[in-house]
Amino acid sequence: MILTWQPQNTASGVCNTIKAYTPVEAHYQQCFHAYFEKLFGYAWSIVNDEAEAKDIVQTAFLKLWEKRSDINVHGATRAYLYTTVYHLSLNTVRNRKARDQHQAGIAARYVSPPVQTAEDKELRERIHQAIDTLPPRCREVFCKSRLEGKKYAAIAEELTISIKTVEVQMGKALRLLREQLADLVILYIVSLFTGAI
């Protein structure tokens, strides 16, 4: 792609100067660099797979390219990208043939973590203890989400509670775990930051 500023329709007299010189392609590229990481993080949070998350973001940007002359307002572009990534991610999860395998993967990470040092073991025990001390309802919701990999909507349906209640319980679980494991958090600040979302 060569980024040049070609005037449009100057011969036919339909020239809308500002639009004609709007550097749509340059703007497009800027959008990519501004949002790529955030969109990748968002896609990854849903699909939990690097290659799939990359594909999703790329597809979203290809869709944006087709619409590049219609969407060049900052806010609109961003909303469009997030919405597209969301729907593509949901489709990916829905169509995933190896869904069971993915579930097994999560379970495997939990049940038999890779080779552990004594410190790792201690850490895991601390975390399990902390989860055990969560209030019963809170723990139930948390475990269904994290250990069984269920979506908020599925948990709400299963426990016949509202999605809002799931949100509240999950938020509470994380807050309580943070309090209990405050020293771990501090420990990890020292280690490398994982970066923003």
Partner: peptide, 13 residues
């Protein structure tokens, strides 16, 4: 957020 994320990544699953 980074702090929360670091804790989160340690949690099972």
């Amino acid at each position: 957020f980074r702090q929360i994320r670091q804790l989160w990544d340690q949690l099972p699953g």
